[in-house]
Amino acid sequence: MFRLSELEEDALKEFFNMGLGMAADSLSQMVRNEVLLTLPKLKVVPYEEAARMLVENQEEKLVAVRQNFRGELAGTALLIFPGTESLELVRTLLNEDIPLEVVTELEQETLLDVGNVILNAFLESFTQMMHVEFEFESAEFLKGSSRFLLDITSHLAAQRQSLMEGADEDEERAFVLMMDFKTSDEEDAQHTLSGFVVLLFSHQAMLILKRELEVILSGL
């Protein structure tokens, strides 16, 4: 069964930490406010458990921008907001005075742009430390209830068919990185945003990551 050593997990957390730092910088420039970051939580779990973790403690309505990446390193990155938060983000980015129906109309387009910037900044940070190459697919916008989010699992299942060729089904695992972020202006609820980033990697990608981690750590 696939396992990371304590040191390898620590190193991955640090890489993710740097990735989210880059992403938060991009987001903070867009919302013109500081983005507060929590300490990263890293879990290695099966896909199905990852899907359960996504919906745990979340409101019914969720919005996600999903970015699949292919190549030597293959997987899925998700930027997730509770539904109400996503509208607030759009309102903050565009114009706080615009009517709700207009915000709703622009939600998908705006969040795709935001998600694209954030997830790209996040993923590209990997290349600072590791010699891995990957390509981004187009970002996708997803919106719906927790039940719908579970349907993402079946979508992932379809995707991983191509990623998992030759891999033992029992060894499927996903890295789930959950880092909360929120803007600092908590006293003014209209300006408070929060969300989190989740990464799902194929088994094959995890082996590549482990190999890269071993190379990096052996040099220290």
Partner: peptide, 9 residues
């Protein structure tokens, strides 16, 4: 020394 590279930091 931080990954949090925001201007405010």
């Amino acid at each position: 020394v931080t990954a949090n590279i925001q201007e405010r930091m």
